[in-house]
C-alpha cells in the first residue's frame, strides 16, 4: 500500500477537503509534500507511524504520515 499523508488543522485547506493524500514510496517527505501542493515550510511537525521524523525521511510502502502546521507559537 502506498504511503498516505494526513494533514491536520489549517493544512487541510491544501487538499481541498480531502482527508488524506496517497503518495509514492521512495521519495522524501519533503518531496511528497510538494507533490500534493503543501509548501514544506508551513509544516512544523512530521510524524511517520506516530514517530517524529525529519522532512528528509525516505518514505516506505505503508507509511502513515501525519503533518501538523505551525499555528501560533509561544
Amino acid at each position: 500500500m502506498s504511503p498516505t499523508i494526513r494533514p491536520f488543522g489549517i493544512l487541510r485547506d491544501y487538499l481541498q477537503g480531502e482527508k488524506e493524500a496517497h503518495v509514492s514510496a521512495g521519495q522524501t517527505v519533503r518531496q511528497a509534500l510538494v507533490s500534493v501542493g503543501i509548501p514544506p515550510e508551513v509544516v512544523a511537525l512530521v510524524l511517520v507511524n506516530d514517530q517524529p521524523q525529519e522532512k528528509d525521511y525516505l518514505l516506505e510502502e505503508g507509511d502513515q504520515v501525519k503533518i501538523l502546521a505551525v499555528v501560533g507559537g509561544g
Binding site: 491536520f8 488543522g9 515550510e41 512544523a44 511537525l45 510524524l47 501538523l68 505551525v70 507559537g73 509561544g74
Partner: peptide
C-alpha cells in the same frame, strides 16, 4: 482537538525544528 496529544508532548518546543 486533533493536535492535543502532539502539542502536549512537545509544548512550545514543537517549533524549534521549524
Amino acid at each position: 482537538a486533533e493536535m492535543l496529544k502532539e502539542w502536549s508532548s512537545y509544548g512550545t518546543t514543537i517549533v524549534v525544528s521549524w
